[in-house]
Each structure stands twice: as structure tokens, then as C-alpha cells.
Write a protein that binds this DNA or RNA. Structure first.
Lengths: 142, 142
DNA sequence: CTATGTGCAAAATGTTTGCAGACGA
DNA sequence: TCGTCTGCAAACATTTTGCACATAG
């Protein structure tokens, strides 16, 4: 996995730096869809001198070479996902977490919808909103 | 239509002001899903003294009473839609326009997906990305 | 060695807030 | 009249940019 990031960067003419590998590692190791600031905070211990600007610049490269996808689940910031498969996301309106919705096959729906539009469809993003299991528990126990 | 906005506002304890009616009118009269700034610009001629802050505050009220829905199709700003029906949106990656995808029944897909998650689902938003008919023409003729 | 990348600080952008005067009910 | 609303300006949060120094290749 790490090796392939190195190769992907080199192949596209980007230099391989510790910062870039570290930022990708954070994204690859989590399912929490962190924002730039969350990534930055995660790296403060290991890379205390890293700047937020570097996080943004690196994410832009990772997106460009197809290693991360960009999410906006209606928040005031973007979140990033190293899982670039087509999968819906769901945000808890109570605690704000954003989860993957695995095991949902979107291809049939996407195909059907693509037929009904005069656009040439190149991609899509599905967001669901609701209350996560943890917050359901908190609400019912209050 | 206008009358119902008046009533909706009054019923919820909000005052009816020319600014609020004007902002809703702009949204109700268009399918272009304007951002706050686009609404503000639209109203410059008729309401030269209106402030952007008023646009934001009003939109928040309209959202709260269910008269508009908030969109974020991956841009750096929010867009607003007075059509609160469940319908997907599609953004042209070339010119940036955001269109409705009418005539798509999402209920079956939503129902299926809702079954597969432990979240309690309360809503959803589907965004497609592609190239609009106008831009397809431009690209092929260049 | 050279071109690209990093980190910092400043700028830009979109949105929110506080408050004095205006106005709807 | 009274409480809410407007418009302004300042504050805020996120993201982008410019540039001197550092570093990958």
C-alpha cells in the first residue's frame, strides 16, 4: 500500500516526501473521513513542524492522482477518504461523525439515473443523514 | 405561493418583511440553485440596501421552517433550492451549473439502503457530476 | 545541482455575529 | 409601543497563495 503511493507519486512526476506518505497513511488507516485539520492534528506528534498548507497541497495531489476522494456531507469543511470505491456516506446529525455505507450496490441506481439525464455522467456522491447507533442510545436513555 | 410564505413565517412566529419575501421569491422563481451571493446580486436592483447578512439569516429561517433545502455539490459554498422534494442534483464540471434531475424516483433506492444501515435515516442528498449538454457541444466543437 | 516541496505568514473566501437604528404587528 | 429585524462592520473558519529555505532525485 505504502509502496504503491510511492510509485503513484513518482509515476506522475511528484516527489516522494515523508509528509506526503504520512498524510496518506493517516487517511489509509482510518474510516473516520478526517478533515484537513483532523489530519493535521493527527500528525502533530510525529511531525510537529508540518503545516496545514502542506496538508492541503498534498491532499490536492492525492486527489489528482486518484488516491483519495473528497467528501462534503453538508458541513463547512471538506473531508477526505482514501477508499475511492463508489460508496454512500452517512452523517450523524447528533454527533457529526461520517460513516461509510458498505455493502450497498449503487451501480444499478446510477445506471438508471444516468439514462434519464442529458448530462454525460462522470461520477456521483450519495449522502445520507440520520442518527448513529451510539446517539440513538444516548437519546433514548435521556 | 407568496401567501403561503407569509403564513408559514407568521405561524412560526417570524415577522414578514419585504426582504424575506424577496429572498424567497428569488429562490422560488429559479431552478439555478443560487448561492447566497447570487441571491444577493439578484436583489441588488430591487433592494440596493439589502445586506448579505440578511440573505444568510433569512435562508436559515426558510430552511428551519422547511421552505428551502440546502445543497453542497462539492463547491466552496452552499446553494439553496426552494423545491424541497427529494430529487437528485447534477453539477457540470465544466461550467459549474447545478441542475435538478427530475423524474427520478429515489424512494426504492433510499428504502433499500435504509435497511442496510444501523443508523436511523432521516434524509439524504444525491449529487451527480458530469458534463451538461451545452458544454458537451462546446467541447466537441473545439 | 536543479526543480520541486515545505513551512510560515498573509491573503482570500464564505459565513456568522454584535449591535444601533428601523420597522412589523 | 415592543420585540424583532435590518444593515453595517468586525469577527471567524476554512482554504489558498507567495515566497525563502530545504530537500528529493
Amino acid at each position: 500500500m505504502e509502496a504503491s503511493v510511492t510509485n503513484m507519486l513518482r509515476d506522475k512526476g511528484f516527489k516522494v516526501t515523508p509528509q506526503r506518505l504520512a498524510i496518506y497513511s493517516v487517511l489509509a488507516a482510518t474510516k473516520s473521513h478526517p478533515s484537513a485539520e483532523m489530519i493535521f492534528n493527527d500528525l502533530q506528534t510525529l511531525y510537529p513542524t508540518m503545516s496545514l498548507a502542506t496538508v492541503y497541497k498534498t491532499i490536492d495531489i492525492l486527489r489528482e492522482i486518484g488516491l483519495v476522494q473528497v467528501l462534503n456531507a453538508g458541513e463547512d469543511c471538506f473531508r477526505y477518504d482514501a477508499n475511492t470505491d463508489d460508496h454512500p456516506h452517512i452523517r450523524c446529525m447528533s454527533c457529526g461523525r461520517v460513516d461509510d455505507m458498505d455493502g450497498v450496490d449503487v451501480s444499478g441506481f446510477v445506471h438508471t439515473v444516468s439514462q434519464t439525464t442529458s448530462y454525460q455522467v462522470t461520477g456521483q456522491q450519495f449522502y445520507f443523514y440520520g442518527v448513529c447507533p451510539d446517539c440513538q442510545g444516548k437519546i433514548s436513555s435521556n
